[in-house]
C-alpha cells in the first residue's frame, strides 16, 4: 500500500488533427489510403499520480518499480540503495531520448516543485541524457544502478492510462510532457543548420522494408533537408550533443519524422513549425500527431501504401522483413510545400 497518494491529473483525451484528416491539407500520399488511427481524432492523455512506498524496489532495465514486500524471501540479486529516499527514473540506453525527456526528466522537473530535491535513481545515463540532466541541474543528484535496488522510501510519479482491452493502454501525449522540454528549450539559442530537418532512424521501420529509402534520402538531400539520427545522436557523419540537437530543432521550420519514439524531440521546435510524419496506410500510432498538438505544431501525415501479401509467403531472400512499401516522395514534397 502506498503511504501517500496525490492526484495531479486524471486520464483524458487530446483531440488531434483539429481541422480533420483533410486530403492534401493534412493527409498526403497514395490515393485511396484509409484515414490514420482508424479515423479517430483523439489520443490518450495520461493521468499523473504521485505515490510514496516504504519500501520500494527499482528495476533499472527494463525500467520498472514495485512495491517491496519485506516479508518476501530475500533475493541475492537485489541490493540496497545508498540513500534512504529516492525517486526512480526511466533512463539508460533502452529508453529513447524523446521518451526520456518527455517522461522521466519531465517528471523530475515537476517533482522538484512539489517535493523538493530528492535523489533520482535509474539505469546509467547515456551522454545525451546526462547532458539534459546537467543543463537542468539534476546530474549531481542522480544515482546509477545496474541491478534491482531496494529503496527504503520510494517516491513514484507515474502516468496512468487506464485499460484498453484488458491491458494498460499505450501512452500517447499529455501536457506534462512539456515540462522538461520547455526548460531545455529556454537554455538554447536556435541554430539554423537547415530550415528543413528530417528526424529519421538509420534503419528502416522495423516491420517494413522501405524499397526506395536510398532514393528518398537522396531526394531529401537534394532539397536541402538535413537528416538527424536522434537514436545515434548524429547529423550526417558528425556527432551531435543534446543542446546542439535542441538548437537545430528550434531553428527548423519544417521537420520530417518517421519514429514515434522520438516524437518528444519535436517539442524543441517553435510553435507553428510544420511537421510531416511518414507512416504506412492503416497507421494506428498517434504519438507524433498528439505531440504536435500539445506543442502547437502544424501536423501533416504522408501515408505509404500498405503492401498486400500472402500470409504463407516466405521472407524474400536478403530481406529482414516480409512487408515492403515505398515512401511517396511526391506526397512528401506536397506536404512540405516544396513541389
Amino acid at each position: 500500500m502506498a503511504r501517500l497518494h496525490l492526484d495531479h491529473a486524471q486520464p483524458t483525451f487530446v483531440p488531434i488533427a483539429p481541422r480533420g484528416f483533410v486530403p492534401d491539407q493534412v493527409l498526403f500520399g497514395a490515393p485511396r489510403v484509409r484515414p490514420p488511427f482508424g479515423g479517430q481524432r483523439i489520443a490518450r492523455s495520461a493521468g499523473l499520480v504521485t505515490e510514496v512506498y516504504e519500501p520500494g524496489l527499482v528495476l533499472p532495465t527494463p525500467f520498472a518499480t514495485r512495491i517491496f514486500d519485506p516479508t518476501a524471501p530475500d533475493n541475492p540479486a537485489w541490493i540496497d540503495a545508498a540513500v534512504a529516499t529516492a525517486a526512480p527514473m526511466a533512463s539508460g540506453a533502452a529508453v529513447p531520448l524523446g521518451r526520456f525527456l518527455t517522461e522521466g526528466l519531465a517528471v523530475a522537473v515537476l517533482q522538484r516543485d512539489v517535493i523538493g530535491t530528492v535523489p533520482l535513481i535509474g539505469a546509467e545515463l547515456t551522454p545525451a541524457q546526462r547532458a539534459a540532466m546537467e543543463a537542468l541541474d539534476f546530474a549531481a543528484q542522480f544515482i546509477a544502478i545496474d541491478q534491482p535496488t531496494r529503496v527504503r522510501r520510494m517516491i513514484v510519479t507515474q502516468r496512468e492510462t487506464g485499460l484498453h482491452q484488458g491491458r494498460p493502454a499505450p501512452l500517447h501525449a499529455d501536457r506534462f510532457m512539456r515540462a522538461a522540454i520547455e526548460a531545455l528549450r529556454f537554455a538554447v539559442e536556435p541554430y539554423e543548420i537547415s530550415a528543413q530537418i528530417a528526424l529519421r532512424r538509420r534503419e528502416p521501420l522495423s516491420d517494413y522494408v522501405i524499397a526506395n529509402r536510398l532514393s528518398f534520402d537522396s531526394w531529401l538531400a537534394s532539397m536541402g533537408v538535413v537528416t538527424i539520427d536522434a537514436s545515434a545522436m548524429c547529423i550526417g557523419g558528425r556527432d551531435l550533443g543534446l543542446l546542439d540537437l535542441a538548437a537545430a530543432m528550434a531553428g527548423a521550420r519544417n521537420v520530417v519524422i518517421d519514429d514515434p519514439n522520438q516524437a518528444g524531440l519535436l517539442g524543441f521546435c517553435d510553435p507553428g513549425t510544420q511537421v510531416v510524419e511518414i507512416a504506412v496506410d492503416g497507421w494506428a500510432d498517434p504519438r507524433i500527431a498528439a505531440m504536435c498538438r500539445i506543442f502547437a505544431l502544424d501536423w501533416r501525415v504522408v501515408l505509404c501504401a500498405a503492401p498486400v501479401y500472402s500470409i504463407s509467403q516466405p521472407v524474400p531472400l536478403g530481406s529482414k522483413s516480409l512487408l515492403r512499401t515505398e515512401i511517396d516522395i511526391a506526397g512528401v514534397a506536397m506536404a512540405l510545400e516544396l513541389s
Binding site: H8, L48, V109, L110, D113, R175, A179, E182
Partner: peptide, 8 residues
C-alpha cells in the same frame, strides 16, 4: 504546467 501539476 508545473502549477497545474502542483495544484492537482
Amino acid at each position: 504546467d508545473r502549477l497545474r501539476f502542483r495544484f492537482g
